[in-house]
Design a protein around this nucleic acid. Structure first.
Lengths: 219, 219
DNA sequence: GTCTATAAGAAGATAGAC
DNA sequence: GTCTATCTTCTTATAGAC
């Protein structure tokens, strides 16, 4: 059983700020390679970083603006509301996880794809211990908000869940759905514990154990 | 390896509101069985409920006051700051989990104690799907705050972790620490997934699988 | 497109009458 | 102890000059 259709992600890197050719006389000589401001991108990156560390509600537009080196008032040229920034972050994080899942899908064997996935938490152990999982922390928080972001929260873990189920199905397991729950649950659980205890070694040992679990599974 | 000493919980049900004998002439006839207001308790219960559903930051004092049927200004008679309410909730939740752990400890066999613990998530499946784990949601959020509550966050999962390690040690397992991490991680993971997907069945199937895992462990 | 100043509203906290 | 009114600060959002 899959979670279903996810929201359209195609609008991800757009925005009312646009990316049109710079009209100012300074750049009029470079009509094709027109240099555009990277402020929108800086704002997104700053927001993503701060939201990971502080949570969405806790992070103010002022935090984001100053971290990105953009005046507060200018933020509203790129984003109509704070919620829009949140939505952009969610969609970006979903895209990132999808990219990693596609990379893992290059492995010929489904079991190896799942094993490969674990390279991500393993190589981000310190970041996870400091701030938690980029999917879990945000989805857990957004699930508690009464904005439209609430509805988007499930996709953050849903993409991983569905992908994992596909792999277990490819392994010929009839309990693929439950195994996928177990796999995703393991990742979210270790991230939460590691973060709360501020201990990256939790990731180390739990990744090892999850690998052993995968390797012991019959096909 | 245990997490360490937890904060002193003895002050839990105290507060500057106190519980002294009611001095008003109305109750002067009942100096011993003096009736005291239950407002403080109502505020705590309301706060606990709302924080579970909405998160601590998201929950306003106004929310808490009106849910408890107490005027906003009166809240400050019982709690000096909002942070104090948060601390009270954390300590109460820690006490609650400790009580359940003690109840489980009545089982003669350590493995049965761990199995017994799982009755809790199993019987609270709907609540967890709707609002998440009372320990995990709060500790994950508080870990992101820069208040003194941050330091308290690790105790929320730490008590469970230490208790589980004791049981695995009693089972004669040399990898008791890692097994405890796995056990706690399972509980937190299933709670997060169940909540994000809004699906209590996640708890059902993951509890079954965790029980199977425990039963298959050698002593 | 950019930036300063500021409006508008929410939320924590306090004053002081009763 | 209780409650209303209000202060203060923080935060989102807008106005409008450049």
């Amino acid at each position: 059983m899959c979670i279903g259709i996810y929201p359209d992600l195609s609008r991800l890197h757009q925005g009312q700020g646009g990316k049109g050719v710079q009209k100012s006389s300074i750049w009029v000589n470079f009509p094709i390679m027109a240099r555009t401001s990277d402020k929108r991108e800086r704002l997104i990156q700053a927001a993503d970083r701060l939201v990971l560390r502080q949570g969405f509600k806790q992070t103010t537009l002022s935090d984001i603006a100053s971290d990105a080196g953009v005046p507060l008032g200018n933020v509203y040229y790129y984003f109509k509301t704070k919620e829009d920034i949140g939505e952009t972050i969610v969609r970006m994080r979903i895209e990132r996880i999808q990219e990693w899942l596609e990379a893992c899908s290059n492995e010929p064997e489904p079991r190896d794809r799942l094993l490969k996935f674990l390279d991500y938490p393993a190589s981000h152990r310190d970041e996870i211990a400091e701030s938690g999982c980029t999917l879990g922390t945000l989805s857990y928080e957004l699930r508690r908000s009464d904005t439209r972001l609430n509805a988007l929260a499930h996709s953050l873990v849903g993409v991983l869940l569905d992908w994992a189920e596909q792999q277990f199905t490819a392994m010929g397991r009839s309990d693929a759905h439950e195994l996928a729950l177990q796999f995703t649950s393991n990742i979210q659980g270790m991230s939460l514990i590691s973060n709360v205890l501020d201990d990256p070694e939790v990731i180390d040992s739990m990744v090892v154990r999850t690998r052993q679990w995968l390797e012991a599974l019959s096909m």
